[in-house]
Amino acid sequence: ATADFVDWLAVERIEGREIDIGIHRRWLDPTKPFAEAVLKPAHGALVTSATLRAGGDWDVAEQRSGAQHLAHPAQRFEAASPFDYPRQAEVLIVTDIKRGDMGALAAAYARLIVAAQGGTLGLFTAIRRLRAVHTRIADRLAREGLPLYAQHVDPIDTGTLVDIFRDDPRASLIGTDALRDGVDVPGHSLRLVVMEGVPWPKPSVLHAARRLAGGGSAYDDRIVRARLAQAFGRLIRRADDSGAFVLLSAATPSRLLDAFPPGTPIRRLTLDEAVDHARRLSSVASLGHKARETADPEGR
């Protein structure tokens, strides 16, 4: 790495076959060219995100947005969330799924989806594990009358998959970071988010250089907090939503739990207990959905 860039030589492989080789170069701090090309020439710029300060402070937000490279300090504004997270949501950390046990991971997804009677968004950090879980649970869920759709498996673009998922309260959808960061499914169709584990950054030459420049383990923690906050953010999209966020990882450090909104109940429990929570959640959510449909049959 130089002062501004990281350079490395890499071989690209697909399904075990080497298909390309090249020299790569990336900015060590990608917000520097963003500030030069976008922020500085602009008369004004508004950078906004519900997770820009996830678990951090304003210095972290300015580092992530490029504001630290401006000649004049940025103006800051923070609005309180309109949602009642202590009442509407809960975080469940499952403690008895062995890391690397694909059978146990697939069984956990299947049991949780069946207990919730669909309405589940499943998030993975690797396409390989997503496909392995899909292969193991798709038939079982189909026999239960619970459709399962999967990014990187179904030959349908992500936007269409989300539309299908949104329109069927008994359907579930599994995918990777595109679903973690950009899905808006308000209402009864999404009442459970299940994440396979703590979304640590993948080791690479680029990540190692940025980690060294960004403060070591504190840099990794900032990335994980932002990803957890984004994933949790899929759950509550309007004032009458409710649901649970399930993390299938016993090794979830307590220091990362401030990624979730203040006051959100956080429980460490077994898979059996999490399934009971999902079953109760489904019953309560179904009653509330039916009540809303009765009061407003046109869904306005």
Rank of each mutant, 00 (worst) to 15 (best):
S217M: 13
A226H: 09
A1V: 09
V205S: 12
H207A: 06
V47N: 05
P82V: 06
D240I: 13
R136F: 00
A126E: 12
D240P: 12
T158R: 15
P297L: 02
A226N: 11
Q117W: 05
R13N: 12
P253D: 09
L46R: 10
A126P: 04
H277D: 09
A108Q: 02
L46V: 15
P262S: 12
L247V: 09
F34T: 14
F260S: 02
P199H: 10
D240F: 04
D7G: 13
V185H: 01
G66D: 04
D154A: 04
R131E: 10
A61S: 14
R53V: 15
G288A: 15
E12N: 10
W8D: 07
A251V: 07
G119Y: 02
L130S: 06
L161E: 12
T252G: 03
A45D: 10
D272G: 07
R292W: 05
R237H: 03
Y149Q: 13
T270W: 05
L256F: 05
P33V: 10
D7V: 15
G16A: 08
S49V: 14
A251R: 13
P297G: 03
H24W: 14
L287E: 15
R166L: 06
K98Q: 07
Q68Y: 08
R300S: 09
V198F: 01
L269V: 08
G299V: 07
H152T: 06
D168Y: 00
S242D: 12
V11C: 01
I236P: 00
A37H: 11
M195W: 05
V91T: 02
A251H: 10
R140N: 11
L148A: 02
F124C: 05
P86S: 05
E12R: 13
A229G: 07
G182Y: 04
T120A: 10
R143V: 08
D221W: 06
P155L: 04
V38Y: 00
A37V: 07
H43S: 13
D272S: 12
Q151M: 03
T176Y: 04
D96L: 00
S249V: 07
D20M: 00
R292M: 09
M195V: 14
T125C: 07
H277K: 07
L228T: 04
G100M: 03
A244V: 12
W200P: 01
E196W: 01
L206Y: 04
A250W: 04
H134A: 08
D157P: 03
R87K: 15
H152D: 10
S81A: 07
E196V: 15
D276T: 14
T125S: 11
A126N: 10
V114M: 12
F124Q: 06
Y109W: 05
R300H: 10
G159H: 05
R53W: 06
Q68N: 12
F5S: 06
T51A: 05
V284M: 10
R166T: 13
P186W: 01
G22T: 11
P262L: 11
R234N: 03
K98G: 00
R222W: 04
G16T: 09
A61V: 08
A285M: 08
G263H: 03
H152I: 02
L161N: 08
L52D: 13
R13G: 09
D184A: 02
A285N: 08
T48W: 03
E273W: 00
R87D: 12
F5C: 03
R17W: 11
D29T: 11
E36M: 14
A142V: 09
G233D: 07
L269P: 06
R191I: 11
